[in-house]
């Protein structure tokens, strides 16, 4: 990618965003829309600063749940995928249940999880994990099966053990697939964490951004709702960018999609 093209990828959405925010601010000011219906961006920014103590604490809680859920999704998703790759029979037996877990809406499962899990954090973590793990599992499983057939034959020819084939051929082959899944799972972990907290509605200490939104809604503190929403979006965007960056660095030397045309 040329320098100009790369700049355009940053400048274009940024310019669009600034224009939209300016139009929003002008619209609110000109029509005299009260803040409890629609606050302007400047007022939301002021609220972010004024309520930063409370908001940052909530941000930390949501971020922690999201990252922990993502970590659990990586560990268990990859472990399950490797397990699936060992036996076609096992994969056939287990995969439908992974799909069931994936297609059942987390809002429907969350109340049960909250009842069963003693600890509120643990309940949220489980819910977020349920939402997040599937793309990693299914992508990694696909990648483990996508190793070059001729290379697999070559490993057989040289008498490679199951372990050698897994470590030297199948896992590296699965890496691009894993990273594609990771990027999706990152976003899903955040969605899972927020949705679960909405359902749980835990108050008091240790509550995250979803609870801030709920509470601010009850009190008609609409600017605060928007401020919390902004922070949730920010987590999502930062995660997307960071995970993409990690994938690019890890695959830079060999995978076509990573560094294509960078030279």
């Amino acid at each position: 990618m040329t320098r100009g093209a790369r700049m355009a990828r940053i400048v274009a959405p940024a310019a669009l965003g600034i224009c939209a925010l300016a139009a929003w601010e002008v619209l609110v000011a000109l029509n005299g829309i009260p803040p409890y219906v629609l606050p302007g961006p400047l007022q939301i920014a002021r609220t972010l600063v004024a309520d930063w103590t409370g908001l940052s604490a909530a941000l930390a809680v949501t971020l922690r749940i999201t990252l922990m859920a993502l970590a659990a999704a990586i560990v268990l998703g990859v472990a399950l995928a490797i397990l699936f790759a060992q036996s076609r029979w096992l994969a056939n037996a287990l995969f439908p249940y992974a799909v069931v877990l994936q297609v059942t809406p987390v809002v429907a499962i969350a109340p049960l999880v909250i009842i069963w899990a003693k600890d509120a954090t643990l309940a949220l973590l489980i819910c977020a994990w349920i939402v997040a793990f599937f793309p990693i599992l299914s992508n990694t499983a696909t990648g483990l099966d996508a190793a070059d057939r001729n290379l697999a034959d070559l490993f057989r020819l040289y008498g490679a053990s199951r372990w050698q084939t897994l470590v030297r051929l199948r896992l590296p082959s699965a890496l691009p697939y894993f990273f594609a899944g990771l990027r999706v799972s990152g976003g899903l972990a955040l969605i899972g964490a927020v949705v679960a907290e909405f359902v749980a509605g835990t108050g008091g200490t240790g509550s995250g951004l979803a609870y801030v939104i709920l509470e601010a809604g009850y009190r008609l503190q609409i600017p605060k709702m928007f401020a919390a929403l902004t922070l949730i979006s920010a987590i999502g965007i930062v995660m997307f960018v960071v995970l993409g960056l990690i994938a690019r660095l890890a695959l830079r030397r060999w995978h076509e999609t990573a560094g294509a045309g960078e030279e």
């Binding site: 001729n150 070559l154 020819l157 008498g159 060999w254």
Partner: peptide
């Protein structure tokens, strides 16, 4: 065995590919 395609491991260097049979 040499295939019609080079059939190399894209994540591995020329040296890494060439020494695969020995490492296995």
């Amino acid at each position: 065995f040499v295939f019609q395609e080079p059939t190399l491991m894209p994540w591995s260097s020329a040296l890494g590919n060439a020494m695969l049979p020995l490492r296995l």
